[in-house]
Protein backbone atom coordinates (compact mmCIF):
# COMPACT_ATOMS: atom_id res chain seq x y z
CA UNK A 1 0.00 0.00 0.00
CA UNK A 2 1.41 3.36 -0.96
CA UNK A 3 0.29 6.99 -0.91
CA UNK A 4 2.91 7.81 -3.52
CA UNK A 5 0.99 6.73 -6.60
CA UNK A 6 -0.17 9.69 -8.68
CA UNK A 7 1.67 11.04 -11.68
CA UNK A 8 2.03 14.81 -11.64
CA UNK A 9 -0.67 15.29 -14.29
CA UNK A 10 -3.31 13.29 -12.44
CA UNK A 11 -2.28 14.84 -9.13
CA UNK A 12 -2.56 18.34 -10.57
CA UNK A 13 -6.03 17.59 -11.90
CA UNK A 14 -7.23 16.10 -8.64
CA UNK A 15 -5.61 18.57 -6.25
CA UNK A 16 -6.71 21.71 -8.09
CA UNK A 17 -10.29 20.55 -7.67
CA UNK A 18 -9.96 19.53 -4.04
CA UNK A 19 -7.87 22.51 -2.96
CA UNK A 20 -10.15 24.96 -4.79
CA UNK A 21 -13.10 23.45 -2.95
CA UNK A 22 -11.16 23.75 0.32
CA UNK A 23 -10.43 27.39 -0.45
CA UNK A 24 -14.15 28.05 -0.81
CA UNK A 25 -14.87 26.01 2.31
CA UNK A 26 -12.41 28.10 4.33
CA UNK A 27 -13.61 31.39 2.88
CA UNK A 28 -17.13 30.62 3.96
CA UNK A 29 -16.08 29.76 7.51
CA UNK A 30 -13.12 31.96 8.30
CA UNK A 31 -13.78 35.65 7.89
CA UNK A 32 -10.17 36.86 8.24
CA UNK A 33 -9.15 34.40 5.51
CA UNK A 34 -11.96 35.55 3.25
CA UNK A 35 -10.91 39.17 3.77
CA UNK A 36 -7.31 38.37 2.81
CA UNK A 37 -8.44 36.69 -0.40
CA UNK A 38 -10.88 39.44 -1.26
CA UNK A 39 -8.30 42.17 -0.62
CA UNK A 40 -5.80 40.33 -2.84
CA UNK A 41 -8.40 39.97 -5.57
CA UNK A 42 -8.44 36.16 -5.68
CA UNK A 43 -11.30 34.59 -7.59
CA UNK A 44 -10.34 31.14 -8.81
CA UNK A 45 -7.38 28.94 -9.64
CA UNK A 46 -6.78 26.81 -12.70
CA UNK A 47 -3.55 25.23 -11.43
CA UNK A 48 -1.98 24.36 -8.10
CA UNK A 49 0.44 27.24 -8.50
CA UNK A 50 -2.51 29.63 -8.95
CA UNK A 51 -3.95 28.84 -5.55
CA UNK A 52 -3.68 31.67 -3.03
CA UNK A 53 -0.85 30.97 -0.59
CA UNK A 54 -0.58 32.26 2.94
CA UNK A 55 2.82 32.93 4.49
CA UNK A 56 3.18 30.28 7.17
CA UNK A 57 4.12 32.90 9.75
CA UNK A 58 0.58 34.26 9.58
CA UNK A 59 -0.46 31.46 11.94
CA UNK A 60 1.82 33.03 14.53
CA UNK A 61 0.16 36.40 14.43
CA UNK A 62 -3.47 35.59 13.60
CA UNK A 63 -5.95 33.08 14.88
CA UNK A 64 -7.12 31.41 11.70
CA UNK A 65 -9.64 28.60 12.04
CA UNK A 66 -12.71 27.40 10.21
CA UNK A 67 -14.50 25.71 13.07
CA UNK A 68 -16.56 27.12 15.93
CA UNK A 69 -14.86 27.30 19.33
CA UNK A 70 -16.86 24.38 20.73
CA UNK A 71 -15.59 22.07 18.00
CA UNK A 72 -11.92 22.77 18.68
CA UNK A 73 -10.53 19.39 19.69
CA UNK A 74 -6.82 20.17 19.79
CA UNK A 75 -4.68 23.29 19.45
CA UNK A 76 -1.19 22.49 18.23
CA UNK A 77 1.64 24.91 18.73
CA UNK A 78 4.97 25.13 17.00
CA UNK A 79 8.11 25.89 18.88
CA UNK A 80 9.41 29.36 18.21
CA UNK A 81 12.83 30.68 19.00
CA UNK A 82 11.59 34.25 19.13
CA UNK A 83 8.61 33.59 21.34
CA UNK A 84 6.00 33.60 18.61
CA UNK A 85 4.32 30.29 18.02
CA UNK A 86 1.88 29.06 15.42
CA UNK A 87 -1.49 27.99 16.74
CA UNK A 88 -3.19 25.31 14.67
CA UNK A 89 -6.80 24.42 15.47
CA UNK A 90 -8.04 20.91 14.77
CA UNK A 91 -11.51 19.48 15.18
CA UNK A 92 -12.05 15.79 15.87
CA UNK A 93 -12.31 14.85 12.22
CA UNK A 94 -9.19 16.74 11.18
CA UNK A 95 -7.20 15.29 14.08
CA UNK A 96 -8.21 11.75 13.17
CA UNK A 97 -7.59 12.27 9.48
CA UNK A 98 -4.11 13.71 9.91
CA UNK A 99 -3.09 10.75 12.05
CA UNK A 100 -4.56 8.31 9.51
CA UNK A 101 -2.74 9.96 6.59
CA UNK A 102 0.52 10.16 8.46
CA UNK A 103 0.19 6.45 9.19
CA UNK A 104 -0.49 5.67 5.54
CA UNK A 105 2.55 7.70 4.52
CA UNK A 106 5.03 6.02 6.84
CA UNK A 107 3.53 2.58 6.22
CA UNK A 108 4.68 2.98 2.64
CA UNK A 109 8.17 2.29 3.92
CA UNK A 110 7.42 0.42 7.17
CA UNK A 111 4.67 -1.92 6.07
CA UNK A 112 1.40 -2.15 7.92
CA UNK A 113 2.70 -4.04 10.95
CA UNK A 114 3.96 -2.09 13.95
CA UNK A 115 7.69 -2.64 14.39
CA UNK A 116 9.83 -2.57 17.51
CA UNK A 117 11.01 1.01 17.82
CA UNK A 118 14.24 2.62 18.94
CA UNK A 119 13.81 6.33 19.71
CA UNK A 120 17.00 8.33 19.38
CA UNK A 121 16.02 10.80 22.03
CA UNK A 122 15.55 11.10 25.75
CA UNK A 123 12.33 10.49 27.60
CA UNK A 124 13.18 13.50 29.76
CA UNK A 125 12.50 15.72 26.76
CA UNK A 126 8.79 14.93 27.00
CA UNK A 127 8.71 16.43 30.47
CA UNK A 128 10.47 19.65 29.55
CA UNK A 129 7.54 21.94 28.85
CA UNK A 130 9.62 24.53 27.07
CA UNK A 131 11.12 22.27 24.45
CA UNK A 132 8.19 19.92 24.30
CA UNK A 133 5.99 21.18 21.51
CA UNK A 134 7.79 20.43 18.25
CA UNK A 135 10.28 17.75 19.19
CA UNK A 136 7.95 16.04 21.65
CA UNK A 137 5.00 16.11 19.31
CA UNK A 138 7.18 14.68 16.56
CA UNK A 139 8.37 11.84 18.75
CA UNK A 140 4.94 11.13 20.20
CA UNK A 141 3.27 11.29 16.77
CA UNK A 142 5.76 8.85 15.31
CA UNK A 143 5.89 6.54 18.31
CA UNK A 144 2.39 5.23 17.56
CA UNK A 145 3.86 3.50 14.51
CA UNK A 146 6.12 1.36 16.65
CA UNK A 147 5.95 -0.98 19.62
CA UNK A 148 8.25 -2.07 22.45
CA UNK A 149 9.78 1.41 22.51
CA UNK A 150 13.30 1.89 23.81
CA UNK A 151 14.94 5.28 24.33
CA UNK A 152 18.53 5.45 23.12
CA UNK A 153 19.42 8.35 25.40
CA UNK A 154 19.14 8.46 29.16
CA UNK A 155 17.57 11.21 31.24
CA UNK A 156 20.68 13.36 30.98
CA UNK A 157 20.73 13.07 27.20
CA UNK A 158 23.72 10.72 27.29
CA UNK A 159 23.87 7.62 25.11
CA UNK A 160 22.40 4.64 26.95
CA UNK A 161 24.53 1.91 25.37
CA UNK A 162 23.00 -0.74 27.60
CA UNK A 163 19.50 0.13 26.44
CA UNK A 164 20.51 0.11 22.76
CA UNK A 165 22.30 -3.21 23.13
CA UNK A 166 19.30 -4.66 24.97
CA UNK A 167 17.01 -3.51 22.16
CA UNK A 168 19.23 -4.99 19.45
CA UNK A 169 19.63 -8.29 21.30
CA UNK A 170 15.90 -8.63 21.49
CA UNK A 171 14.77 -7.21 18.11
CA UNK A 172 17.90 -6.80 15.98
CA UNK A 173 17.32 -9.89 13.88
CA UNK A 174 13.94 -8.68 12.58
CA UNK A 175 12.98 -5.40 10.88
CA UNK A 176 12.80 -2.59 13.41
CA UNK A 177 12.11 1.13 13.33
CA UNK A 178 14.55 3.83 14.35
CA UNK A 179 13.24 7.35 14.74
CA UNK A 180 15.02 10.53 15.70
CA UNK A 181 16.13 13.99 14.80
CA UNK A 182 18.79 14.03 12.13
CA UNK A 183 21.43 15.63 14.28
CA UNK A 184 20.80 13.33 17.26
CA UNK A 185 20.94 10.28 15.00
CA UNK A 186 24.29 11.41 13.66
CA UNK A 187 25.75 12.28 17.01
CA UNK A 188 24.31 9.59 19.24
CA UNK A 189 23.53 6.65 17.05
CA UNK A 190 25.85 6.62 14.07
CA UNK A 191 28.99 7.39 16.05
CA UNK A 192 28.08 4.99 18.85
CA UNK A 193 27.19 2.21 16.40
CA UNK A 194 30.49 2.74 14.63
CA UNK A 195 32.51 2.77 17.83
CA UNK A 196 30.86 -0.29 19.31
CA UNK A 197 30.24 -2.27 16.15
CA UNK A 198 26.46 -2.35 16.58
CA UNK A 199 24.53 -4.12 13.82
CA UNK A 200 21.73 -1.89 12.55
CA UNK A 201 21.21 -3.70 9.25
CA UNK A 202 17.59 -4.62 9.98
CA UNK A 203 16.73 -1.06 10.95
CA UNK A 204 14.57 1.36 9.03
CA UNK A 205 15.52 4.90 9.97
CA UNK A 206 13.05 7.75 9.75
CA UNK A 207 14.58 11.10 10.62
CA UNK A 208 13.84 14.78 10.37
CA UNK A 209 14.74 18.12 11.85
CA UNK A 210 16.86 20.04 9.43
CA UNK A 211 20.41 19.82 8.18
CA UNK A 212 21.80 23.05 9.54
CA UNK A 213 23.73 21.56 12.44
CA UNK A 214 25.12 18.81 10.24
CA UNK A 215 26.08 21.14 7.43
CA UNK A 216 27.92 23.16 10.10
CA UNK A 217 29.90 19.96 10.73
CA UNK A 218 30.38 19.57 7.00
CA UNK A 219 28.13 16.51 6.75
CA UNK A 220 26.00 16.59 3.60
CA UNK A 221 22.81 14.54 3.20
CA UNK A 222 24.72 12.25 0.80
CA UNK A 223 27.49 11.70 3.27
CA UNK A 224 24.95 11.06 6.01
CA UNK A 225 23.52 8.17 3.97
CA UNK A 226 26.94 6.86 2.99
CA UNK A 227 28.20 6.77 6.51
CA UNK A 228 25.04 5.15 7.86
CA UNK A 229 25.46 2.45 5.25
CA UNK A 230 28.77 1.60 6.89
CA UNK A 231 26.95 0.59 10.06
CA UNK A 232 24.53 -1.47 8.01
CA UNK A 233 21.73 1.06 7.95
CA UNK A 234 20.59 1.15 4.33
CA UNK A 235 16.91 1.90 4.67
CA UNK A 236 16.98 5.57 5.56
CA UNK A 237 14.18 8.07 5.02
CA UNK A 238 14.46 11.75 5.80
CA UNK A 239 11.20 13.68 5.91
CA UNK A 240 10.04 17.27 5.85
CA UNK A 241 6.91 18.53 7.51
CA UNK A 242 5.60 21.24 9.76
CA UNK A 243 3.01 21.60 12.45
CA UNK A 244 1.10 24.06 10.24
CA UNK A 245 0.35 21.15 7.91
CA UNK A 246 0.18 18.43 10.50
CA UNK A 247 -0.20 14.93 9.10
CA UNK A 248 1.48 15.77 5.84
CA UNK A 249 5.09 14.70 5.48
CA UNK A 250 7.29 14.72 2.43
CA UNK A 251 9.28 11.52 2.56
CA UNK A 252 12.65 10.62 1.14
CA UNK A 253 12.49 7.78 -1.38
CA UNK A 254 14.32 4.45 -1.03
CA UNK A 255 17.28 5.60 -3.10
CA UNK A 256 17.72 8.86 -1.23
CA UNK A 257 18.51 12.29 -2.52
CA UNK A 258 14.94 13.52 -2.91
CA UNK A 259 11.78 14.08 -0.93
CA UNK A 260 8.48 12.95 -2.47
CA UNK A 261 4.96 14.31 -2.08
CA UNK A 262 2.15 12.01 -0.96
CA UNK A 263 -0.92 11.88 -3.22
CA UNK A 264 -2.79 14.45 -1.15
CA UNK A 265 0.05 16.98 -1.12
CA UNK A 266 2.42 18.81 -3.43
CA UNK A 267 5.10 21.48 -3.48
CA UNK A 268 5.61 24.57 -5.58
CA UNK A 269 8.98 26.34 -5.73
CA UNK A 270 8.57 30.07 -6.23
CA UNK A 271 10.86 32.75 -7.55
CA UNK A 272 11.24 35.11 -4.59
CA UNK A 273 11.28 38.13 -6.89
CA UNK A 274 8.37 37.44 -9.22
CA UNK A 275 6.60 34.80 -7.08
CA UNK A 276 6.00 32.76 -10.22
CA UNK A 277 6.55 28.99 -10.12
CA UNK A 278 10.09 27.94 -10.99
CA UNK A 279 10.92 24.98 -13.20
CA UNK A 280 12.88 21.96 -11.87
CA UNK A 281 16.50 22.77 -11.12
CA UNK A 282 15.93 26.35 -10.05
CA UNK A 283 15.94 26.97 -6.30
CA UNK A 284 13.42 29.28 -4.68
CA UNK A 285 10.99 29.60 -1.83
CA UNK A 286 9.09 26.45 -0.99
CA UNK A 287 5.29 26.36 -0.93
CA UNK A 288 3.54 23.30 0.45
CA UNK A 289 -0.03 22.30 -0.36
CA UNK A 290 -2.12 19.59 1.24
CA UNK A 291 -5.76 18.61 1.39
CA UNK A 292 -5.51 17.72 5.09
CA UNK A 293 -6.10 21.15 6.66
CA UNK A 294 -9.89 21.19 6.77
CA UNK A 295 -10.33 22.96 10.11
CA UNK A 296 -7.99 25.89 9.40
CA UNK A 297 -6.93 27.59 6.14
CA UNK A 298 -3.49 26.00 5.98
CA UNK A 299 -3.92 24.05 2.76
CA UNK A 300 -1.64 26.34 0.71
CA UNK A 301 1.34 27.68 2.65
CA UNK A 302 4.43 29.58 1.69
CA UNK A 303 7.19 28.32 3.97
CA UNK A 304 10.31 30.25 4.91
CA UNK A 305 12.43 27.42 3.57
CA UNK A 306 14.35 27.42 0.33
CA UNK A 307 13.97 24.40 -1.88
CA UNK A 308 14.44 23.02 -5.35
CA UNK A 309 12.49 20.53 -7.44
CA UNK A 310 14.89 17.99 -8.94
CA UNK A 311 12.52 16.31 -11.32
CA UNK A 312 8.95 15.27 -12.08
CA UNK A 313 7.78 11.67 -12.54
CA UNK A 314 11.39 10.50 -12.87
CA UNK A 315 12.31 9.08 -9.48
CA UNK A 316 11.57 6.29 -7.01
CA UNK A 317 7.96 7.38 -6.83
CA UNK A 318 5.79 9.46 -9.21
CA UNK A 319 5.25 13.21 -8.91
CA UNK A 320 7.70 15.92 -7.95
CA UNK A 321 10.88 15.14 -6.11
CA UNK A 322 12.66 17.94 -4.28
CA UNK A 323 15.11 19.00 -1.59
CA UNK A 324 14.97 21.56 1.17
CA UNK A 325 18.03 23.79 0.99
CA UNK A 326 17.82 25.82 4.17
CA UNK A 327 16.02 28.74 5.71
CA UNK A 328 15.37 32.13 4.29
CA UNK A 329 17.20 34.51 6.63
CA UNK A 330 14.82 36.65 8.65
CA UNK A 331 14.14 40.21 7.60
CA UNK A 332 15.64 42.85 9.83
CA UNK A 333 15.04 46.52 9.37
CA UNK A 334 17.15 49.43 10.21
CA UNK A 335 15.17 51.70 12.48
CA UNK A 336 15.02 53.70 15.67
CA UNK A 337 13.83 50.91 17.93
CA UNK A 338 15.64 48.29 19.93
CA UNK A 339 18.45 50.23 21.57
CA UNK A 340 18.79 48.30 24.71
CA UNK A 341 17.62 45.17 26.43
CA UNK A 342 18.27 44.49 30.06
CA UNK A 343 20.86 41.86 30.84
CA UNK A 344 18.59 38.83 31.19
Amino acid sequence: MSVFTLSQASKEEQLVKELSALTEHHRARCEPYDRILSASGFTSASSIADLPWLPVRLFKTLELKCIPDDEVFKVLTSSGTTGDVSRIHLDKAAAAEQQRRLAATVQTVLGSKRLPMLLVDTKAMLKDRRSFSARGAGVLGMSTFGRDHVWALDHDGEVDLGAIRGFLDKHGDQPFLIFGFTFLVWLHLYEVALAHGLDLSNGILIHSGGWKKLIDQAVSPEEFRDRLRRVGLTRVHNYYGMVEQIGTIFLEGPNGGSLYCPDFADVVVRDPETWAELPPGEPGLLEVVSTLPTSYPGHVLLTEDLGVVHGIDDGDWPGKRFSVLGRLPRAEARGCSDTYRGAA
Binding site: P32, Y33, R35, P55, R57, L302, A331
Partner: peptide, 13 residues
Protein backbone atom coordinates in the same frame (compact mmCIF):
# COMPACT_ATOMS: atom_id res chain seq x y z
CA UNK B 1 7.51 37.98 2.86
CA UNK B 2 7.48 40.17 5.97
CA UNK B 3 5.46 42.74 4.04
CA UNK B 4 3.01 40.08 2.86
CA UNK B 5 2.51 38.88 6.41
CA UNK B 6 1.83 42.41 7.62
CA UNK B 7 -0.40 43.32 4.68
CA UNK B 8 -2.40 40.09 5.10
CA UNK B 9 -2.81 40.89 8.76
CA UNK B 10 -4.21 44.29 7.92
CA UNK B 11 -6.64 42.67 5.50
CA UNK B 12 -7.59 39.91 7.95
CA UNK B 13 -8.56 42.41 10.62
Amino acid sequence: VEKRVNAYELAAT
